[in-house]
Design a protein around this nucleic acid. Structure first.
Lengths: 167, 167
DNA sequence: TGTTCTATTATTAGGCC
DNA sequence: TGGCCTAATAATAGAAC
């Protein structure tokens, strides 16, 4: 969305909710239409809403009925494949996502920590950190100190190759 | 809609069409989900596609059947309200849109012409214009010339009020 | 063939009338 | 209330792997 990042939760304000519904249902149907045109698929959408007495049906009630007929003709086990209580299929999907989630989480931790480190270095304000953050920060700082140390060594070797210090 | 402006027509390239389908059907379902969450409406979507043996059904086949049941329970005249052959209703909608379309068209014409005028003035290349464009351009230029004339007069009157020219 | 990246277009929240 | 506007976020085409 826009102007502000959308929080995905029921919009309590009646006026805002209706405005959002109008815009978004229009947008949704446009997207469905584009999908059908671009990819030559058959689709229908039905939206039951409190603003109209009748559900919004796209692209036409006739087409919806055709698509539904095709759908109803499927064997029962296919029709119920997505039922909310079908645990094994849900679990499979969840597992598949968990891998990605874990990776994202690690990335985020690293980024967050690096951000905190720079904020602290700039402001000098270390006192508000949690114990866990402090520990992680110390680890990160030590890593960086080691890196810097290695870099100093490298540069010294480049500038004064194989030369012993005086005294 | 991106990297290039999308042309709304069947994507001939198999690979691109499939990629587009995957992205867009995912996007469509996300939008449907958001609509339901934000506005508390009940909706379902069914997409019949050549890549899977079964149609893609959202949010679940169970929910789809519930929404369809509600839809099927409507009286016949409502169910067929959107049928492609229902000319009077289509015509009404078309008329409603035509007003807006006409206004937009006029706006566009004006903008396009103004753009062409400036391009021509900058480049000096008038030779590639169509007859119609040329005529419109002449009209626009004459308008502008008149405007400039009026402005010159205005400024002269401001600088030399009620004064006759020498000789 | 699917996944990831990112430049660009498309959608839309909130404000205004 | 509904339509218009604009700033800002979201979706995604095309490329690379």
């Amino acid at each position: 969305m826009t102007k502000t990042k959308v929080i995905l939760a029921y919009i309590a304000n009646d006026r805002a909710r209706k405005a959002s519904f109008k815009k978004r249902s229009k947008g949704l149907i446009k997207k469905a239409d584009e999908l059908c045109t671009l990819c030559d698929v058959k689709a229908c959408a039905i939206i039951v809403n409190p603003y109209d007495n009748e559900p919004e049906v796209w692209p036409s009630n006739l087409r919806a009925q055709q698509v539904i007929s095709g759908f109803k003709r499927l064997p029962d086990h296919v029709q119920s494949r997505n039922k909310e209580d079908n645990q094994s299929i849900c679990q499979e999907r969840i597992s598949k996502k968990e891998g990605k989630l874990r990776k994202q989480y690690m990335d985020n931790q690293q980024k967050e920590l690096t951000k905190i480190m720079y904020m602290c270095l700039v402001s000098g304000a270390f006192q508000n950190l949690s114990l866990a953050s402090s520990k992680s920060l110390v680890f990160l700082l030590n890593q960086n100190i080691k890196d810097v140390g290695r870099r100093i060594e490298l540069l010294q070797n480049a500038m004064f190759p194989r030369q012993d210090n005086v005294e």
